[in-house]
Amino acid sequence: MVDVNEEGFFEHPEQWTREIASQIAADDGIDELTPQHWQVIDFMRKEYFAKGTGPTVRVLGKTSGVTVKDLYLLFPKGPAKMAARIAGIPKPKGCI
């Protein structure tokens, strides 16, 4: 069992596993997580554990190796929200 808040974000990111990520993604309409998805997910977790909050879309676009355009194609329900949920981290705090 994992603890999530009412929006579906993990309360304890350490409870996350790659299997759970695939399951959340499937529930959110992403049938299969591609290597590019994983690149974003892994980057988000790394940033979260280093900085205490997930990266904004702008930071993702500049430093994750995936462009803003591709981020929106990979996570059509919004990269900030969807990718953080799949990555098992709290919703990023930034506005941009």
Partner: peptide, 12 residues
């Protein structure tokens, strides 16, 4: 602009 960008980030 911030509101439009923020909307897209939420999937709106």
């Amino acid at each position: 602009l911030i509101m439009a960008n923020g909307a897209r980030a939420e999937g709106i």
